[in-house]
């Protein structure tokens, strides 16, 4: 009797969590999977039976030119933004670790403000900064000597073509996401025993060498988690791009915006097609993350 009870108890304890996660996460995911094989509009939302269309939605998505340009934008943007976020975040984390007193509070406070800004607010602020009417960026670039930055910035249209749009988007997203990396790195640094750095200093190691030989190996598990999270966040950036260039610039779509345009862009909701794009995006993310985690586990770095 007692033995069976012990066996069941752990499962009973985990059950409430499983139920909640199941209801809030797994069930919607299953629904999205089902929707992606159906044709779903308003009538179906209201309760009419939906028509099963098999893989039609997926075929339509994969055959669309927009899918491939959106896919390319998503991947390239994530690669650049994640790299920059990690680099800037780590640098600021190291800086915060060195600073003392008022300066430390000042920098930490500034960093927190960027972190606390809601994406929609950040997006609006950046589209004003880079706007053609009264935009600060164009004004500064125009004021700088032409030899340095070239001329004709006054009316420059940052959101007219994909490349400048993504430059602004990258700046905006990195500005918002590096604080989390910085704070996490700082927390990690606080846990590293000071003697190690002192020893390195005594041996005359450069800062660069100290970072790669001491800090980085010790904080590797933290970097791994931060990297995976950053990849996930930067893959699904939506709000900022929607505000900055929106639906009138489909040459700058990423996968999230493409899914939105298909599913919710007009009165004629196409939730099946939107779900298919969302599923594709999820699968890509799972593959990228799984590959990376596997690589790390193999090296025994998570143990």
């Amino acid at each position: 009797m007692i033995r069976t009870r012990t066996r069941i108890t752990p499962y009973l304890l985990i059950l409430p969590t499983l139920v909640v996660i199941g209801a809030l996460l797994f069930w919607p995911m299953i629904q999205i999977g089902m929707l992606s094989a159906q044709q779903v509009g308003h009538r179906q939302l209201r309760g009419e039976p939906a028509q099963w269309v098999g893989t039609d939605n997926y075929t339509a998505v994969l055959e669309s030119d927009l899918f491939w340009s959106s896919f390319m934008h998503t991947v390239l943007f994530a690669a650049v933004a994640v790299t920059l976020t990690m680099a800037v975040g780590t640098a600021v984390g190291l800086l915060l670790n060195q600073l003392r007193g008022r300066m430390s509070n000042f920098v930490a406070g500034g960093v927190m403000i960027a972190w606390a800004t809601p994406p929609i607010t950040a997006a609006i602020v950046f589209s004003w900064l880079f706007g053609s009417t009264g935009g600060l960026a164009n004004w500064v670039l125009e004021a700088l000597p032409d030899a340095l930055v070239g001329g004709g910035w006054r009316d420059y249209n940052w959101f007219g073509s994909p490349f400048p749009t993504y430059v602004v988007l990258t700046v905006c997203v990195v500005w918002q996401s590096f604080p989390f990396v910085a704070v996490s790195v700082l927390a990690g640094l606080k846990s590293v025993p000071g003697e190690l750095f002192e020893a390195a200093k005594v041996d005359g190691a450069s800062a660069w060498r100290t970072f790669w030989r001491i800090t980085f190996p010790l904080l590797r598990p933290i970097f791994l988690v931060l990297l995976v999270l950053s990849i996930i966040w930067d893959f699904k950036v939506f709000t900022q791009l929607f505000v900055m260039s929106g639906l009138a610039n489909r040459d700058a779509y990423n996968l999230s915006l493409f899914a939105y345009a298909e599913a919710f862009g007009s009165m004629n909701a196409k939730l099946g097609l939107g779900s298919a794009i969302a599923t594709v995006l999820t699968v890509i993310l799972l593959v990228v993350t799984a590959l990376y985690v596997r690589m790390m586990v193999r090296r025994g770095e998570l143990a």
Binding site: G160, S161, L247, A248, N249, R250, D251, A261, E262, F264, G265, S266, M267, N268
Partner: peptide
């Protein structure tokens, strides 16, 4: 389908943009 043409796909705006560029 005009809602798709005009709002979610913005067909005319995107075509005009391509030509302008």
């Amino acid at each position: 389908g005009w809602a798709d043409y005009e709002q979610s796909k913005k067909v005319l705006p995107n075509a005009v943009k391509e030509v302008m560029q």
